[in-house]
Design a protein around this nucleic acid. Structure first.
Lengths: 201, 201
DNA sequence: TTGGTTGTTGAGCGATCATTCATAAACTTG
DNA sequence: CAAGTTTATGAATGATCGCTCAACAACCAA
């Protein structure tokens, strides 16, 4: 009976992620969103409810993608700690690509900082996502502990937060005008931090 | 002859720093700025030229204050590395105060992330400030090298960038809902990173 | 075909954006 | 007090903000 939608929801969402990642929440106007998604306001509001709703879904989509990326990356490593070290180096080198992504800094962190005092809903969503990421890292580190990679007395949640801080710092630094070499050195130095948590290094 | 200004420029600027730090550039409207500074639009534009001009001066003022704070802090330490370690812990503990500052994350980093694709002038200003801070840290580390605190072969600019990343990560993490204990642990862990760069630790 | 249902459209809504400027007020000097 | 100079004011500007909705288009079942 009904007329079928002419837009692919996920495709539109991916374009929204790209725009918001690039320009942030306040920096993206509905006019720009209409252009980026190639949708008219009525369709956007029918599909996503509001600018906030669209941003919220974009943030969730971005986070899910990030989680998938991490899983796929870690699947290639027997040693969890080495996998995490390689992950840090990978972030550093991927940020040096010119055409890599809409922005180098993490959309979740950008949202955390931008929304903290202007948009409680988005702020709390960013909080939840970051808490979930911390948990993912903590679980990986627990596995590493069980595999005997790190000391039994290691506080995995605490180390997970240190690791998360490294990524936040690294990706924020990537917004600076550093050379590829400098950024890769930073990735190496951050990876080296994990060495001191390794057993029998 | 002339009518004297009724507003203290520096006082107004301090209030602007507070507002912008709290709400960011796009998140602060002229209406809110008028309220915060207790000035009418005409006076604001006569004094600072534009919203951009005001933000730019506020950012510079914030950066200068940060530089002064660092100097004053370091003056209390004979060992430079220990001073820097204490500095990291100090940031962590000061961020746990409820009423400490308008925001926990660094205004310069907030600006870097917010302005990167929406305001080239502010973005490049943030770049310069961060480069200057990197240089300050590098100079401190050079002194530490001369005092024999760290290895002669240490790349001070590189270590300075690692240190700067730690602060970015720490203060961004401070925007999360972590407990005072968790944040202080993070400060301790970051300070511990410098231990591995110390000679005769 | 036709009737019914849903999707798309874009002009236009009131609100708010950053900014301006004619006017009024405050002060010093003569 | 009057003349001269600078500052302060806030209503009003055009532009843009996020968003709505009546009209239209596209599809399916009968």
């Amino acid at each position: 009976m009904p007329r079928p939608p002419s837009y692919d929801r996920d495709t539109a969402l991916a374009k929204a992620v790209s725009l918001f990642w690039h320009k942030g929440y306040h920096g993206s106007s509905m006019k720009q969103i209409e252009q980026a998604l190639d949708m008219r306001p009525g369709s956007i509001y029918a599909t996503f409810g509001s600018k906030d709703g669209l941003f919220s879904e974009a943030l969730a989509s971005y986070a899910q993608q990030g989680g998938t990326d991490l899983s796929e990356h870690m699947a290639g490593y027997d040693s969890i700690v080495e996998g995490l070290q390689a992950y840090l180096r990978k972030i550093a080198s991927s940020c040096t690509d010119v055409d890599c992504a809409p922005a180098r800094a993490c959309l979740i962190v950008k949202t955390l900082l931008e929304a903290s005092s202007t948009n409680p809903a988005l702020y709390s969503q960013a909080q939840s996502v970051l808490a979930a990421i911390e948990t993912s890292f903590a679980e990986l580190l627990e596995s590493a502990k069980n595999q005997g990679e790190i000391a039994v007395k290691t506080d995995c949640r605490r180390l997970a937060r240190l690791l998360q801080s490294q990524i936040m710092g690294l990706r924020s630094m990537a917004e600076r005008n550093l050379s590829a070499t400098e950024l890769e050195q930073l990735g190496d130095d951050m990876a080296a931090i994990l060495d001191s948590y390794k057993l029998r290094d």
